[in-house]
Design a protein around this nucleic acid. Structure first.
Lengths: 267, 267
DNA sequence: CAACACCGTTGTTTATGAAGGAACAATACC
DNA sequence: GGTATTGTTCCTTCATAAACAACGGTGTTG
């Protein structure tokens, strides 16, 4: 097969499979025609046509009408359904996210460490018209998002180091790129039990993050609410922090975490 | 590449892609090792190992620990999320299914025609311990399930014929395989507005199906409750039929369907 | 109404990239 | 400490996927 295009990262990994998923993820953006996709991905029309036919045969794509455009097929639901079945965290989180988004009038997200990334594994969009865009399955920045900072703060310092080895990218003037300042930040988050982020990743967008604990008390995931800092009811204030913490505690409880009984008041 | 195994259906379709998805769907059943999968699918260990690495690189599989077994990755959630975004029917159906399953104490399903199949596109498991097994993304039998019969009953007779061309498979002694009897059945379903099925596909399992209508009144999907005919509160009785119909009407209304005003009583 | 432009599909050919087989490195288990 | 089993990596080979061009539709336009 002649590869007229540049093949940069071909260390290993099945080229054909990678292309199939590229195609599928393009389809995820809405119905697409063969020619359109071929141009978008720099492939041959015939390749795309045959690939889509394969995907359609498997149910991961559908072609509503003969000789027409393709779109995502319902078989993707099967995989997701099975994934959720195996992940108690996400299953338990769904209703919590729904209530949280509604009450906070902000977008609610759940993230956790998967492989070597921090990924958003569930979300509920804000009921407000204006909301921050995000996608399930996307990754989040370790040092510049409330979700990432909570996940890092919950790790043993040795593990945390491995996440902060690479240079810390600066997204805005508020991004914390100083390692000493970040260390203080983690200490603060661990002590207070929540993280704040105001424009560190995107200017004008704020986020509050809180840990989700498993039965052993470990911080295994992060729950957050986020939204524009102006124009919606969402604010980085005490009320929203308490609301988030309440729901994070509820989710932790659903996972079997029992809070330590409050210390008896002295005297 | 030497294909020592029989390659029966290789008309077209990318072999590598088909294998990748076979692998993924195997993983959907739970964590699997490389060797295990290789045996299960009749592939070479090396092939499976490389394929899984590719899938892991894309996020569709994960290997929780080095040199360990693989499982499904969170990227599958992304595709499903986008699919749902594009499908108002399923989005609106989810809360309806939840309530319906809880109130009927039975499994609730939503099915529709996709490509050339009737597929379950959403479900909510029964709150009862004993429940019928089913999977989102699976297909349902046109002539022997309540879902299938409702979908067929809602079609124009000409279209319906195309679904019933092949010989009608008999699953149990109750399966309707006589075409005249089936025609009567469709007429009945259309008149009553719901379908009953008792052991036609699996002995001991019953199902009630009702149509979901779009704004134009067309039957675009089928909603159902199903469960064992003994051992749970689920029954094929008037109470459950009315419950299902109420939720099906609610879903239709959410999709913009306005019921015709009841005819004024005569006299 | 014919000519055109566009789309998705389908042959055919070729060398590329995936499959095979075996050896390799880690574990876990006697 | 040996042994069995796991997942990974080499290397060779040829079957397979990519390219390219021609085809058969559909809708549009002069």
């Amino acid at each position: 097969m002649l590869m007229q295009q540049e093949r940069i990262e071909n260390g290993d990994g099945y080229q054909t499979v990678e292309r199939a998923f590229e195609l599928l993820e393009s389809l995820a953006g809405g119905p697409r025609g063969v020619t359109e996709l071929a141009v978008e991905l720099g492939l041959e029309k015939s390749t795309v046509s045959r690939m889509l036919k394969t995907l359609a045969g498997l149910g991961y794509a559908v072609q509503p009408e003969k000789r027409g455009a393709y779109q995502l097929g319902p078989r993707v639901l099967y995989l997701a359904d099975r994934y959720l079945d195996a992940n108690r965290l996400i299953r338990e989180a769904r209703p919590v996210l729904e209530r949280l988004a509604l009450e906070a009038r902000a977008s609610a997200h759940l993230a956790r460490e998967v492989g070597s990334q921090f990924l958003v594994v569930a979300k509920e969009a804000s009921p407000e018209l204006i909301q921050v865009a995000s996608a399930v399955g996307g990754s989040c920045v370790p040092h510049a998002s409330a979700l990432g900072k909570v996940l890092l703060a919950g790790m043993k310092p040795a593990l945390r180091m491995r996440w902060l080895q690479e240079p810390l990218q600066r997204f805005t003037e508020k991004t914390i790129v100083d390692r000493a300042a970040l260390a203080d930040e983690f200490e603060l988050i661990e002590r207070r039990g929540y993280a704040l982020e105001a424009g560190e990743e995107h200017l004008g967008v704020g986020c509050i993050g809180a840990p989700v604990r498993d039965a052993g008390g470990r911080w295994i995931a992060a729950l957050s609410i986020s939204g524009p800092l102006r124009g919606t009811p969402f604010k980085l204030d005490r009320e929203h922090i308490e609301l988030l913490l309440a729901h994070a505690r509820a989710l932790s409880a659903a996972l079997g975490y029992r809070e330590a009984p409050a210390a008896a008041p002295v005297g």
